[in-house]
Amino acid sequence: MLEIKDLHARAEEAEILRGVNLTVNAGEVHAIMGPNGSGKSTLAHVLAGREDYEVTHGEILFQGKDLLEMEIDERACEGVFLAYQYPVEVPGISCKYFLKAALNSIRTYRGEKRCSAKEFLELAKDKMQMLGMDKSLLDRGVNEGFSGGEKKRNEIFQMAVLQPKLAILDETDSGLDIDALRIVADGVNSLRSADRAIIVVTHYQRLLEYIVPDKVHVLADGRIVRSGDKTLAWELEEKGYALVEGEREAVQTQA
């Protein structure tokens, strides 16, 4: 589904990603962990197409297509979804209008029938119920005045409605209490399927107790320095990122 090959990216003068290699197959859940500043969020946003980052080298294939050639909205229409670490407030436009516009943009792109207002409301209410959200949220401005937990839940809600092929969760767990975390994780788990891939970017192992990954990668200094199965996450929890110090040094020496 997703193949990242020797990806280098920079923001202004600083090189942040320095040769990321990652392959994610359909049906898999990958966790990307790493210390602060290691490039986790940058990787997530490079996948979504944020223009603040410049890809200087490497390629990304998504379902065999060159992702880097695609516009931001094209990527979403192809099935890439990023759940933001810091969802953006857009006062003045209701969640309802926003999400319906998104869903219909994607459907139009795929040559599918547009969703009527009624169909959309039914779909939205169904997903909101699953996530324990109050449906009055639909008429509020996008993330406007939402608490941190509401914002994160709203990201997962959007994901549940848009049904992406590749979902990237950027620190979706940060700032959530345990109840909210469980609800969010249930939402994500309900999306797990054989034709969908999920990348969970997180600083903490806690989320991975609820969303159990198939593979865990450690990103440090802009590269994946170690990969393993879910036990790697437990090991990291126990020993901290000092665990990968050796690999980091090796990588730096190579560089």
Partner: peptide, 17 residues
């Protein structure tokens, strides 16, 4: 960027904003 990353075209996103 937020709107576009949900599949909304740039023109439509600008209009919405």
């Amino acid at each position: 960027y937020y709107l576009r990353s949900r599949g909304i075209s740039e023109d439509l996103a600008r209009s919405l904003l």
